[in-house]
């Protein structure tokens, strides 16, 4: 450290010239701003288009603000737009998605928590193999289970129903929920479990009074992850539903790709925003946990 003054003089002078630095800062902020515009543009276009009348859409341009703000497209999208033969807007399908997502998120989170607790804290022969098998299940392309699942749902008598979709989402969500909780509980020293066992506490007692109270952050991460996955799902929704039980993503796609009548772009955009609102809201309110789930789901451990 003593000879800093000798080594730094030439190159520091070259790097730190104040004008160059200022110019670089300005360029940096301009670049960051342009990227922000790129990411915001589609949302901006969706919102403005949804507030325009069809006439204005035909005559105006893509990024202009609405001359006259109208909520007609929103009303149509919510209550009267046609999704195939049914013309009740996205409202019933929005509630389908709620009815699917809430139980599926709750069940898969609870079971994942118990699984993670066992795998991390009650290691027995084979627990690691179970975990590896489960982990691999997170990665399979779901196309490979679509055909047999369609048949099994039929045999179980829940094909095309909301309980059927809940069942599917719980089964294929377990991999990730187990992974989240296992990785969280693995960092809790197992002396804690051992001491509690010595004190005579049983399996559920330890879970309930020691682990669960420590779990709030990972519960939030898991619930957000599962909710986003299930709300945004399309593949299971389109494969295992029938008219009347479709989730909102399927209804949105049907509205946008229906070929009958005049194409109402403003209604399409309003419906798309309605379908996106719940997960966007979660992101805005709990973005930190959302990101943690994303990174935990990819960079494990």
């Amino acid at each position: 450290m003593t000879d800093i003054s000798h080594t730094r003089s030439p190159s520091m002078a070259r790097n730190q010239s104040p004008t160059v630095k200022l110019v670089l800062r300005v360029v940096l902020y301009i670049l960051l701003g342009l990227f922000a515009l790129f990411y915001l543009m589609p949302l901006f276009v969706m919102i403005t288009t949804s507030l325009k009348s069809l006439d204005e859409i035909r005559t105006g341009d893509l990024i202009s603000l609405p001359r006259e703000v109208t909520l007609d497209a929103w009303k149509t999208a919510w209550a009267t737009a046609c999704t195939g033969i049914q013309c009740e807007g996205v409202r019933p399908f929005f509630w389908n998605s709620v009815l699917i997502a809430i139980p599926a998120v709750m069940i898969s989170t609870l079971v994942g928590a118990l699984n993670g607790y066992v795998v991390a804290q009650w290691r027995f022969k084979g627990a690691n193999i179970f975990f590896a098998l489960m982990l691999f299940g997170c990665f399979i392309p779901f196309q490979v289970v679509l055909l047999p699942m369609a048949r099994v749902l039929g045999i179980m008598g829940i094909a095309g129903t909301i309980p059927g979709l809940i069942f599917v989402h719980v089964i294929y969500g377990l991999g990730f929920t187990t992974l989240f909780f296992r990785n969280y509980y693995v960092s809790i020293p197992d002396e804690l479990t051992k001491a509690a066992k010595v004190d005579g506490a049983g399996f559920f007692r330890i879970f309930w009074s020691i682990f669960l109270p420590l779990s709030l952050p990972i519960i939030v991460v898991t619930v957000i992850w599962q909710f986003t996955q299930i709300w945004n799902d399309f593949l299971f929704g389109v494969s295992f539903s029938q008219a009347g039980t479709q989730p909102v993503t399927v209804a949105l796609n049907n509205i946008v790709n229906s070929t009958t009548g005049v194409k109402e772009y403003n209604v399409d955009m309003a419906a798309a925003i309605i379908a996106a609102l719940p997960t966007l809201l979660v992101y805005v309110v709990a973005g930190k946990y959302f990101i943690r789930g994303l990174t935990a789901g990819s960079v494990k451990g």
Partner: peptide, 29 residues
């Protein structure tokens, strides 16, 4: 800025597809 760059990840691909289909529409986009 981070919030802005990351929010599309919270959307369904169907929503993303709908938005871009409209933006890339040759006649009106």
């Amino acid at each position: 800025l981070r919030t802005i760059y990351l929010y599309p990840m919270a959307l369904s691909m169907i929503v993303t597809g709908t938005a871009w289909k409209w933006i890339l529409n040759p006649g009106l986009g």
